[in-house]
Write a protein that binds this DNA or RNA. Structure first.
Length: 181
DNA sequence: AGTGCGATTGACT
DNA sequence: GTCAATCGCACTA
């Protein structure tokens, strides 16, 4: 995940996310489009930013064809670039909690509703890149990071669905210990 | 027009 | 472990 700001570039590896697919009663798109959630109905790859609990922004990415509601909540990053600026945004120097959790992540990247509706493919102020290894590893077997699947965090409806995905063992993943697998 | 609560976090016992 | 902060919005009437 790459955030471009006048002060510099911020980036991090996505290590935790949750799916909110079409028809999911826990999704904000479930009851149809409204002014708040219309970005979830844009073609996949658009940003939906939700202001939660009156104080935290949450970063989502639409995941379906145009007109179909669905999205992915980005819950945690492993910080890569611009760590000092992220620390200023978070008013904390604690590295492990810098982007661990959806609210912290959005604060660190200075994400708010002005980014709502943005097309991630447009290479604007926010986009997703593919990290290229420092050295060419074509002849080396690339090891896939171990993935784990659990129920989603902090929801009440469809609470049994296994739609949370994270990199096993990564210290930048959020959530209660009982969900660790 | 009024109301209850939410995809969380940080402070505190 | 508990709990307050804080507000936009969907829902009810």
């Amino acid at each position: 995940m790459v955030r471009e700001l006048p002060e510099g570039r911020l980036s991090g590896r996505i290590v935790e996310a949750e799916g909110y697919p079409p028809g999911d009663p826990a999704g904000h798109h479930f009851r149809g489009p409204t002014p708040r959630n219309q970005s979830l109905f844009l073609r996949c790859g658009h940003v939906y930013v939700y202001f939660n609990y009156g104080m935290h922004f949450m970063l989502n990415i639409s995941s379906e064809r145009a007109g179909i509601g669905g999205g992915v909540l980005i819950r945690a990053l492993e910080p890569l670039e611009g760590i000092e600026l992220m620390q200023r945004h978070r008013k904390s120097t604690d590295l492990i909690d810098l982007t661990r959790g959806p609210g912290r992540l959005a604060a660190a990247l200075r994400i708010d509703r002005t980014l709502d509706g943005l097309d991630l493919f447009s290479r604007g102020p926010l986009w997703i890149g593919v990290r290229v290894p420092e050295k060419s590893a074509r002849h080396v077997a690339v090891k896939e990071p171990p993935a784990a699947v659990t129920v989603r965090i902090g929801i009440t409806r469809a609470a049994d669905k296994l739609f949370r995905f994270y990199e096993r063992g990564n210290p930048f993943v959020s959530g209660p210990k009982r969900l660790l697998r």
